[in-house]
């Protein structure tokens, strides 16, 4: 018999303390949950993986017809379809991550009640699942941009990582917070679609930030997704995004991440009792 040096102490205080080592130890579970979600999602569907690109493409077409052609919303030096698709790729990653993370605890209730593992793995793995879709969409976006004659410029080096990180930070923060609240209050289920819809309107996805007066822009930037979407357009557009606004969004996304994380860690220990 192999003698293990591992010692587990269980006391009221040993719970709710964040151990990075624990997450590292359970890292395989992190992949396996994502892998499971990816595997399961398109089983028994006719279009399969095509669904990943279906949603942003159809939305782009509809938005282009209504907001681009009829409402004539300005889109700077980019054609409206490219303008809106860029925003949608990031926006969809954000909204899918938030809603999957928010429901992750409830969907895995039976596991939470019967097995121990750091529960933060569940919402985080749904972020990883969404990331795969996001990469596919990003690939489509670049093809579309090149085809329409708007190859990415050099600013991609910092603007792309910036947009991705801000999106990940803010969706993790909000996702963790909602996942935890959802365990106790199932109201989240009803609020969530509404919340995401409202957020879409206050994020410059279908319109450019430039249609707002400078004094209003600053309020918009508190919504970190404003910064992410604006920055992502700078990859194809000739105009440099406003760095002050990007900084505000970046700080805001970090604060959201920390708040979500702290709230989740504090409430995590009671999940198995109340879910």
């Amino acid at each position: 018999m192999r003698v293990s040096s591992r010692e587990t102490v269980i006391s009221p205080k040993s719970f709710g303390v964040f151990h990075l080592a624990e997450i590292v130890r359970f890292r395989e579970l992190f992949y396996i949950f994502s892998w499971r979600d990816i595997k399961v999602r398109y089983k028994q569907t006719f279009l399969g993986i095509f669904w990943v690109i279906f949603q942003p493409l159809v939305t782009t077409i509809i938005f282009t017809v209504f907001f681009g052609n009829f409402a004539k919303i300005p889109s700077g030096d980019l054609p409206y379809p490219l303008f809106v698709l860029t925003g949608l790729v990031f926006w969809n990653y954000f909204s899918n991550s938030v809603s999957h993370a928010a429901n992750s605890m409830i969907e895995n209730e039976s596991i939470i009640k019967k097995v121990y593992f750091p529960k933060i793995i569940l919402p985080l793995s749904s972020l990883l699942t969404g990331f795969i879709d996001f990469l596919i969409n990003l690939f489509i976006l670049f093809i579309f941009a090149v085809v329409t004659g708007h190859s990415p410029n050099l600013r991609i080096i910092y603007l792309l990582p910036f947009s991705i990180l801000v999106t990940i930070f803010s969706s993790s923060g909000i996702g963790l917070f909602l996942a935890s609240v959802n365990v106790k209050y199932r109201d989240v289920r009803y609020i969530l679609p509404f919340f995401i819809q409202i957020l879409l309107f206050i994020t410059p996805v279908i319109y450019p930030l430039s249609i707002l007066s400078p004094s209003h822009k600053i309020y918009m930037a508190f919504n970190p997704m404003s910064g992410a979407v604006e920055a992502s357009r700078g990859i194809f557009s000739g105009t440099t995004p406003d760095f002050f606004l990007l900084t505000v969004s970046a700080v805001s996304s970090l604060l959201i991440l920390i708040a979500g994380f702290v709230y989740f860690s504090k409430t995590e220990k009671f999940f198995a009792d109340i879910v």
């Binding site: 591992r6 587990t8 939470i112 121990y116 198995a272």
Partner: peptide, 22 residues
């Protein structure tokens, strides 16, 4: 199994734990 926290007291488990509740 560390699924739910105790209110009082302490337990020490010296070794790798696998629990099979279901």
């Amino acid at each position: 199994s560390r699924i739910t926290p105790p209110t009082e007291g302490k337990a020490v488990l010296r070794g790798r734990v696998a629990s099979l509740l279901e």
